[in-house]
Design a protein around this nucleic acid. Structure first.
Ligand SMILES: [Mn+2]
Ligand SMILES: [Mn+2]
Ligand SMILES: [Zn+2]
Ligand SMILES: [Zn+2]
Lengths: 188, 188
DNA sequence: TATCGGATGATAATTACTATCACCCAGGCG
DNA sequence: CGCCTGGGTGATAGTAATTATCATCCGATA
């Protein structure tokens, strides 16, 4: 883990050009219409090395498309994630989750119901190998989040219920999800 | 990384008892008042193995303290994090952050301004060693989040500006923080 | 036990989405 | 190329999760 581990702007620029070139055909494959807004959101996102939030993408787009709606930006970003053209860096961002366990440990997270279990993998506790800094950054620690499907959700997924957070053309169906193990209903 | 990596309920029960026993003296050291609400939030949190959200803690507390306020629960949970008696599993939960880079990579996050930089550490890409499951969970992947302080924030921290998210006795001072690199002002 | 500053409860305000719905336009068809 | 049609969009209302405000309370110390 040396300074080369920081991804460079140069790499990203070339990567962005390639991804953008493929984008319209990817939409066509998926049956998604190629609208100026959709392309623009993709272009701004893929050109950003800073993991922007919807507001930030919106702000950049407004200069070019003064009439674009923030809702469209939110929708489009979720669509891009759903078709695998983007990812959310913050899959657990919907509400803050607290932990009384201050011992060093890591987490196993069900991507569907967001159940979180503690795991203790000694190997994960020294991933930084005592390294104190990386470029301009002073390193403080690291957290491993293992994405998984819990038993309950695996069964549900197999029986054909769609996974949550996969926004698509059908926003109007209710889905059973569990949050922290409690069962509740949420619109999607 | 075998099944023993899942932390057991038994371990947690013993751990919870110990943490709770130390709690009042820890508050005293920090100059924090020992209120029934504060102790109760700590007790519920440390007894929970499920990384609850504020609402969930609130629901459990209400049975015992019908008059406790949800705001108090939010405040107290943040206080516990600030003094190191708890941690937030979701440090980036405040707004969704998107990434146009779908190549496998991991992230370096400034804990203060929430800048996120890509890092590519080949070693991090095989932490699961091809393992497909853990207990009831089907493993899908994993993400490493390296917590750090960026250069700008390190300088700010050294010059005595308090870190964000450290709720304490002084909620009423404004702080300069940057979000995704943009500079903005936020009340605290 | 009196004092006082931090803590709390009630509630208003804010932030970040998410739903609704009328209208629009991309893409298939002739 | 000019209609059709359903997904896409903009405007806006609604919701969930905090966060701020402030009068009142009460734990800590003297
Ligand atoms: Mn934990
Ligand atoms: Mn990234
Ligand atoms: Zn699950
Ligand atoms: Zn920073």
């Amino acid at each position: 883990m040396n300074d080369q581990t920081l991804v460079t702007d140069k790499w990203r620029a070339a990567y962005a050009a390639r991804r953008l070139a493929e984008f319209t055909s990817r939409c066509r494959e998926r049956g998604l219409a190629i609208t100026p807004q959709r392309v623009a959101v993709m272009r701004v996102l893929v050109a950003s090395g800073d993991h922007p939030r919807a507001e930030t993408v919106f702000a950049k787009l407004r200069k070019e498309y003064p009439n674009i709606s923030l809702a469209t930006v939110h929708r489009t970003l979720e669509t891009l994630c759903a078709i695998g053209e983007a990812r959310k860096v913050t899959p657990l961002h919907d509400s803050a989750r607290y932990d009384g366990n201050t011992a060093p440990h890591h987490h196993l997270v069900c991507v569907r119901c967001r159940k979180i279990r503690d795991i203790d993998v000694p190997e994960f506790n020294d991933l930084l190998h005592g390294r104190q800094s990386l470029g301009e950054f002073q390193l403080l620690g690291c957290a491993v989040e293992v994405q998984a499907l819990c038993g309950e959700c695996r069964r549900a997924a197999n029986s054909g219920v769609r996974t949550p957070n996969s926004r698509g053309q059908t926003h109007n169906l209710k889905q059973r999800i569990t949050r922290e193990g409690e069962t509740l209903w949420r619109k999607h």
